[in-house]
Design a protein around this nucleic acid. Sequence first.
DNA 1: CGCAAAGTTGAGCGTCCTCAAGCAGCGTGG
DNA 2: CCACGCTGCTTGAGGACGCTCAACTTTGCG
Lengths: 240, 240
Amino acid sequence: MSATAERNQPTDAARQISDTLQLLQQHVPMQRRIVHAGDRLFQAGDRFTTLHVLNSGFFKIVNGSNDGREQVVGLNFKGDWLGFDGIALGRHGCDAVAIDTGEIWSFRYDDLLAACSREPRLMALFHAAMSREIGRDRDSMLALATLPADARVADFLRYWAHTLAERGLRNDCITLRLTRAEIGNYLGMTLESVSRALSRLARASVIRFPEKGRRDIQIPEVGALHAFIERCTATAAVVH
Amino acid sequence: MSATAERNQPTDAARQISDTLQLLQQHVPMQRRIVHAGDRLFQAGDRFTTLHVLNSGFFKIVNGSNDGREQVVGLNFKGDWLGFDGIALGRHGCDAVAIDTGEIWSFRYDDLLAACSREPRLMALFHAAMSREIGRDRDSMLALATLPADARVADFLRYWAHTLAERGLRNDCITLRLTRAEIGNYLGMTLESVSRALSRLARASVIRFPEKGRRDIQIPEVGALHAFIERCTATAAVVH
DNA sequence: CGCAAAGTTGAGCGTCCTCAAGCAGCGTGG
DNA sequence: CCACGCTGCTTGAGGACGCTCAACTTTGCG
């Protein structure tokens, strides 16, 4: 939680991302490719051989169960790594689906390891990326388990805005690449509940919609999202 | 998902665990220590320097938020690694608390890296452990977001039984080291709901309680838990 | 034996889901 | 150009699942 990650001045995260891209380019043979919304980078059951780093674009990670349930369990942005889940069993356990046009860098896992032994900084970045993923997943669980629906939506927006800010991008007006149904799936609620939550957030002036369309969301003040979330959890723990 | 992990014959997981313990012992300078229920291995904010592997006992991982919410986001068993979350930022983001007496092996992260460069098999096991953690967290999210309360409890028992079986231990009668409140916290529900869910599971003969005490839980047939979970999700998706 | 902590069970209620209707944006084709 | 259909989004009404509050039982420990 970097107190206030201002945009357009390199944050720790931004530096880490550019270092990663640079080191990969220098030391690991890889393939660059353009993907479009809907493209599947890999899916559950695929044999694991390669890792990927997102140079631009957005991905969603979908986890399925044998009885047909499935859920969006992760979102990926520029600089994020994809495919870690395959290392353990040699097969992927989830699908990675592009939700916008973007560029993906792919390289063999064993080539990465070879490069890491020559360039310890790359190893450090690799491990840090896996570690971050674990921390991120745990934060998702915390939100899923402890926040009421409205606060989960607010937390989702806060996370998205934070992620953009980290990368030096504008975050006062974000364009969601997900439908209400996908957001709902990610947050463990129905699309109607997402819609209602957004309406309430707008009514509370925490977010704002543009004149036309409700796909973009304006966030005048990220702090207001924090405040809203705390207000939700506070009412749950009233006097008593 | 190894089809049927029979106990008392070494599974993949069991072999991996013994390999890990053996390689660590041979190549990494480390400290062995006994911990007791309630002991804290590390907590959020602590500077990260060392990783840990559980040689015996049970741990819970507790994640907190700045506004006071906290949740059990992970459970650890023999052979599991602890501390991955600290690598990214150099500080831990959660607490690791022992929930039973056990033995923990601790070693410096940089010592591990040095050993890994000499012994690639250790590196592979290290990466596999992180990868497994990610996959496991995603399964937790899936359960939290898509299963009704009763099914979440059944899934929790299924996971616990499966984990014991993987390690070659009896899993037809498991002793929960967690209170109803802790289980509820882990599953995103109240302790009363956990209690009711267990009662319903017992009424449906999916589990059984011993004559005295309700801390132990007998699971005559693990498959029955699967069936129960599917029955729960099926009723949600009726004809239509 | 008595107290504290953990667990069970019931009654009432609130949040969120389900079902349904209507609206908005958008590409296609007459 | 507008009708048309499609997909995504919003909003309302009713109901169910799980939470809150409360009483009681059981277990464990000094």
